[in-house]
Design a protein around this nucleic acid. Sequence first.
DNA 1: TTGTAAGCGTTATCAG
DNA 2: CTGATAACGCTTACAA
Lengths: 352, 352
Amino acid sequence: MTSPEKKPTQRRKRPGGRLQIRDVARLAGVSAITVSRYINNPGKVAKDTGEKIASAIKESGYIPNMVAKGLSSNRTNVVAAIIPTITNSIFADLVSGLSDGLEDNGHRLLIAESGYSLEREMELIQTMIAQRPAGLVVTGQVHTEHGAELLRSIDIPVLETFETGAEPIDMCAGFSNFDASFQMVKGLIEAGYRKIGFVSAPIASNDRATRRREGYFAAMKEAGLNVVPGWVRDAKFAFREGARALGELVEQHPELEAIFFASDVLSIGGVMECQRRKIRFPEDVGICGFDDFELTAMTNPPLTTVRIPRYEIGHKAAAMLMARLNGDETVERSVDLGFEIVWRGSTRLPPQ
Amino acid sequence: MTSPEKKPTQRRKRPGGRLQIRDVARLAGVSAITVSRYINNPGKVAKDTGEKIASAIKESGYIPNMVAKGLSSNRTNVVAAIIPTITNSIFADLVSGLSDGLEDNGHRLLIAESGYSLEREMELIQTMIAQRPAGLVVTGQVHTEHGAELLRSIDIPVLETFETGAEPIDMCAGFSNFDASFQMVKGLIEAGYRKIGFVSAPIASNDRATRRREGYFAAMKEAGLNVVPGWVRDAKFAFREGARALGELVEQHPELEAIFFASDVLSIGGVMECQRRKIRFPEDVGICGFDDFELTAMTNPPLTTVRIPRYEIGHKAAAMLMARLNGDETVERSVDLGFEIVWRGSTRLPPQ
DNA sequence: TTGTAAGCGTTATCAG
DNA sequence: CTGATAACGCTTACAA
């Protein structure tokens, strides 16, 4: 009966497949493209047509397919972020700021953790590129050679966070870790401290930690103060490690008058260890940190620290990305959100 | 000269467009589909063909387009997670476990924060569905009616985390917040405490907090102990709020013998306030928490708390999702990862 | 083992 | 303001 001459490939069956734009179009009595226009820019559609489409969408419960949209328009609504670890609350704050800023612009956030490894970061850059994100956020300004190459070669906005010292690959938002650390140490010196210890995260694969350490050395040098090698150490990112570092420093270097922990995870661990050992601060040794965690204001006495705008960095990063995606080519390339030295009772105060 | 009869739509120009699979195919001297096969399942391609393709990929630096793949295969490699806030470290740990488990299976993680609002969660479920994720992870087992409807209607695995009390919509991984709280309070009672205060996060839109509060009431009731309304309060998720709650409780209810903070953010805030007020624990009042943050083991004395497997929940959730996506229909629907009461020096200990 | 053709659900392009 | 058509880059279905 039928002509079996051409047997075209069968239409793929997608059982339980979702509603498509064409279903909405049929319901509204218009073409698919008109529905698409309405969704993306209601103003481009006549008012009553728009109303018909709106009610068709509502009745049917249509949820657009952003995968198809992404392929067709060559532009997804996803921004990818690569951070060292989400369990360090400074990055959780960053992600929160990013997320808020992106959501407000209809974008989603894809995250991945590099574990403080630049090699891993490079691999993640590749897997993220495969997702064709609208923008890419990374941490710090140092990457593997190939990672940097990839970042330079992609045609989407790239934003480096948490450090502003170097020329950005594309854009950056953060602050000067060098200056922050330098100012903290300079303040300690002005407060009368001379023998100052320094504890930070391991500097390998971590330009922020590296810059903070450099800031410490520079401030000591500027003041003509000698640094004994044993005064400077690193500790992995954990409260316990801060405690251990404090214990070692006070035992091996009882001459130290103050200890600067370049992370509040470490400083709070140090404070806990002081309490355990009945070491008084600032009387026996001055203690200060970096980050300004909520807890640093609640220790007894509260901790002197460097306040850094983590949430704001994320939020600003989102804004910069969104501006660029909206075609604004005047976006600043390097944004310094600054920092603030917060003097509290865990150290002596500088004059004035 | 040329016949201008049919002018087909011009091929869309994508300046700076990335390499495509067909470019690799040309380089390797095979067809696109063969390259596709090699990428997705190298075993399905002859060995020497595979080698040619591998070197073509390497030379060209080809990075696949997962958007096109997603559309074509009707299956993305993205898992979406909706959590209350990433700044609460229990969710950061969850996300970390999830992320690790997903990365190991070539999947990426899309996250969004609901801010502890079920309404917002429902909106996010919609926007997440628009991304056509391979799986969806949500927090808790209570959702808005429409949210639950959406979760039931989608054809992807859905996983509810952090609570196992109810029948899951699809799957769940967590523990019993009721039991954990009940056991903690029961232990306190066995340790001799009778007048026990309770501080938790606001229970609105938070079934985990609700269940913990119910566990407290149930344990008190079972022991025949009366609960004075003023003994029970809530505090927003912040160290400062835990401190405030402790201050109010000891002032307004000096009869309290112990205070159970159903979150270690609150318990640590409480400990800080004790130190400030020179309130000794466990001598003046017993203090215990919930979560087992790293810091709870470092206070002086260390805090009694409930250890919950946050990272493991995320990791198990990823494993369950991946198993289902691999076609394993035997995956358990409800996985209880348990909890552990950790007795430390901040409370008297139960006998034995 | 490899290839051809069609199609995934949307939008760019061009025409009316 | 609206529509027809092809195209996005890949994979499924089928054939060889």
